[in-house]
């Protein structure tokens, strides 16, 4: 029996992404956000999560995908990091999947751009590919 891992999955511009389930604090619906002027564009705003102020990062912009249409409300995937929680804005939530380590593979060399840095690897599922996000890198914006 090969080792398995659980991932919390979500859709982003038709790509199928996953983050380790243990990193996810909670998933919440769209929240009204407070804009942060002069911040990097992928910082969509601040949300109030039960008294805690959390930065919301738009994953589409973070990964260099085309921006979400105005009428589409994103979901918040709240990630635990060393410096407190951060929310990642995604299009749609998927299930929590248990995948076998055997199907893991590093991202192809031809993958370029921001995605190259942020995608840790790929799980080859039967019907599609699951891209695994490096959460620590994703929430670190200082390199930009």
């Amino acid at each position: 029996m090969a080792e398995t891992k659980q991932f919390c999955t979500f859709l982003l511009n038709d790509f199928f992404f996953g983050v380790e389930v243990l990193k996810v604090q909670e998933v919440i619906r769209y929240q009204e956000m407070t804009r942060v002027p002069l911040a990097p564009c992928m910082v969509r705003g601040l949300i109030n999560l039960r008294g805690q102020i959390i930065t919301a990062i738009d994953l589409r912009l973070r990964l260099g995908l085309e921006p979400r249409k105005d009428n589409e409300l994103p979901m918040n995937v709240v990630i635990r990091t060393d410096d407190g929680a951060v929310s990642l804005l995604v299009d749609e939530m998927g299930d929590v999947l248990e995948v076998s380590e055997e199907s893991f593979e590093a991202p192809p060399e031809t993958l370029q751009g921001q995605a190259r840095e942020l995608i840790r690897g790929v799980y080859k599922l039967k019907e599609r590919l699951l891209l695994i996000l490096d959460t620590e890198r994703t929430v670190t914006l200082s390199t930009l």
Binding site: V36, A39, V43, T55, D83, T140, S142
Partner: peptide
Amino acid sequence: PLGKQLKSL
């Protein structure tokens, strides 16, 4: 406090 993403502001 703000998250580290916004420390530069």
